[in-house]
């Protein structure tokens, strides 16, 4: 921890709070994520993980507290604003258009244009294909036919396209919500391998998962939430599945570091 506190975290949230009517979903949450690390965010259902993520990705406005990106205070008015500032979120449903191909999905909403017929502007499909190929290569993802619609791809390939989209647009922080939940075992491995690739490229990843095995496989650090609060924070090599489960369900007093 000591060496980390010296440098500026990529993401810092301080006292972040969100209430829904009488319910406080997230209650004065503090958390840091540093460049090049993978942080697992775990907690039981209703612990406030999703609400916290949605505030960081601009879906919800916090009722209280602050979000800092590379030390600079930011307020996201929309998911788009968050993306513009480099916070890419990959939701469980991936938000891909299944009728369109991988390259179009990577560029959707930010398509490169070229001149056509002299005075018209056409979508530059060729550029989209070559650029998509290069970002997929960078992530060591193999998709045989980039013109194939997403519909015809496996779950792992879809996840890979969603990750490639986030990476292409130079994510400063990648948030992944249950990235392995809908996948078979070999596909889960591929996605975890991708998370490692992201870390090697110095992109910090905040990963939400129910699967503690996954968290142990990729995370450097784990943040445990219960009832809207952070109830613990552990380096992965200093903890065990048993301890994390105990923290999640609240079996013992919180040990502060």
């Amino acid at each position: 921890m000591a060496e980390q506190t010296k440098r500026e975290p990529t993401l810092r949230v301080a006292g972040l709070t969100k209430r829904f009517g009488g319910l406080t979903a997230v209650d004065h949450m503090d958390m840091n994520v540093y460049a090049g690390e993978v942080v697992g965010l775990i907690g039981d259902n209703g612990a406030g993980k999703s609400t916290l993520i949605k505030m960081i990705s601009g879906v919800y406005r916090p009722d209280d507290g602050k979000i800092f990106l590379d030390g600079e205070e930011t307020t996201f008015v929309s998911p788009l604003e968050a993306r513009r500032l480099g916070v890419e979120t990959i939701y469980q449903d991936l938000a891909l258009c299944e009728n369109l191909d991988a390259s179009v999905n990577i560029f959707l909403g930010r398509e490169p244009m070229r001149r056509s017929l002299g005075f018209l502007k056409a979508v530059d499909r060729k550029l989209m294909l070559t650029e998509s190929q290069s970002v997929l290569d960078r992530l060591d993802i193999h998709i045989p036919n980039l013109r194939k619609p997403i519909r015809e791809m496996s779950g792992g390939q879809r996840q890979a396209v969603a990750i490639a989209r986030a990476v292409y647009w130079n994510a400063r922080l990648m948030i992944m919500d249950e990235p392995t939940a809908a996948l078979g075992v070999p596909e889960q491995r591929k996605v975890l391998h991708l998370v490692n690739t992201l870390r090697e490229q110095n992109v910090p990843v905040l990963i939400i998962s129910h699967n503690l095995q996954d968290v142990f496989a990729v995370a450097d650090r784990v943040v445990i939430m219960r009832r809207g609060n952070k109830v613990g924070e552990r380096r992965i090599e200093e903890t065990s599945i048993d301890e994390l489960v105990t923290l999640m369900v609240g079996g013992e007093l919180v040990r502060e570091e």
Partner: peptide
Amino acid sequence: HWLLKRSRFGLHTYAIGGNQEAAVRAGI
């Protein structure tokens, strides 16, 4: 045909029909 196949508007038309929520999140 040009509008549907070559323009940004055409591409967005397919995207909205494919997954409107994804189109919103992509910033369309």
